[in-house]
Design a protein around this nucleic acid. Structure first.
Lengths: 242, 242
DNA sequence: AAGTGGTCTAGACCACGTC
DNA sequence: ACGTGGTCTAGACCACTTT
């Protein structure tokens, strides 16, 4: 149980890795409680303090959520508190209101050069492409084009999407067992083209935020690539630097 | 030494607060080592573990930096590793190269409505306004207009700025004793007006990123308000979501 | 060898939620 | 009353840096 050498890894990180395995293999599912710290300490044959340190890091990475007196739970995008965790768009005036996701199209295709690279799949491998808008108080503010690996998201169709009211990631997690844990966004300013200007109800040439996102699941595996165009007339993208 | 009631605060948070005081009062200065955990444990009359937990949080907030075997140090914007910590602009191709800050103007003024609100000062209180560009390999990519409370930044002039080669925040910290620890950015897409288009060498109407930032020092006190316009032809704004 | 932060343990007790 | 996470302690030992 003592760490060995070449590249030294402390015990609590080894425990952490074992716990990530349990998450990845769906032994512990989103929204459920994991075993108590005492149980885990027995199971891994370490002290409670060591388990605590592993959980501390997993909680800091938003993989787990601690609740004093109740237990430790697997984070879920279906939990209202982290439902739109990855959406940084905020109304200029007025309070935060949850947007409504409205699907436009959904079709199957083969991965082009860029999609293949971003998703880490073969050129020509099946992908599902989804276009949708986000509406704040029924006004369209964002239009997204989303690329998903067909292998993982088999069975994702317009029908499936239309029956939903939560966030897309909540659906992915509940229906396809894919939990999004981290993303990287590349943001630019672009001019609205003809098609987008109609979708968002702005004039052609209006400056828009272009937000390209690659989203990762356990093990830093990319499982979504999307490009969003955000109208920032009455909203802004909020970022906290620290 | 035990925590008392109404709103319960654990011991390590009380220690943390005392340590923030030492930072704020410049007892411990940027770049310097703070006392060892042992010394602090004696000084505060708690165990080393409790001090450790306080330091853990301060390190997580980037106020302190731990260095195994050497000690714990006050974070500094003059440290190359965190020199442009708040700049999220990255070249589309090519490696990260540090930009050069080129001051354009610097003058004194009285706080207008918005500046007063953002900086938490009186309407009409003295402010210093600074315009500058950021150049990547000598091409201007960003133009900033920066508002600073005159009270704190007395003596900031073009001459002072021109003698500098590090980051602005490094200068603020070394020369004015103001350490920036946190910021909030509001990002929009806008069209370049005549004046900005000339400064950045783009055509009028080019979509640009508008980045409004309020920056805070210890105690969540706002001490800078700025608006930057970023040309995203060959760069993008990078944001990590987690 | 000495000093620093980093890990690990074992045990006591506190705060919170549920039964 | 009980179980959960949260705090605090004291001591041993490890890993890294400097002298």
């Amino acid at each position: 149980m003592r760490p060995e050498s070449p590249t030294f890894s402390p015990l609590y990180r080894q425990i952490k890795k074992l716990m990530v395995n349990s998450l990845q293999s769906a032994e512990w599912r989103p929204g459920q409680a994991i075993p108590s710290e005492q149980e885990l300490a027995l199971r891994f044959n370490v002290s409670q303090g060591t388990v605590r340190k592993a959980i501390d890091e997993l909680a800091a990475e938003n993989l787990l959520v601690r609740k004093q007196g109740k237990g430790t739970f697997v984070a879920s995008h279906n939990d209202p508190r982290s439902m739109f965790r990855f959406l940084r768009l905020v109304p200029t005036d007025g309070e935060l209101v949850h947007p409504q996701s409205v699907p436009l199209d959904c079709w199957k295709a083969k991965a082009g050069n860029e999609a293949a690279r971003m998703l880490g799949i073969e050129l020509g491998a099946p992908v599902i492409i989804l276009r949708r808008t986000l509406r704040f108080s029924s006004k369209p503010v964002v239009v997204d084009e989303i690329y998903l690996p067909g292998e993982i998201f088999q069975g994702l169709t317009m029908e499936v999407l239309q029956g939903e009211q939560g966030s897309l990631y909540g659906l992915f997690e509940a229906r396809f067992g894919v939990r999004m844990i981290r993303a990287e966004e590349h943001i630019r300013a672009v001019a609205a083209d003809r098609m987008v200007s109609e979708t968002l109800g702005v004039s052609e040439g209006t400056p828009l935020l272009s937000v390209e996102r690659v989203t990762y699941t356990y093990g830093d595996r990319p499982v979504e690539w999307r490009r969003g165009l955000y109208c920032t007339a009455e909203h802004y993208y909020l970022n906290e630097l620290s």
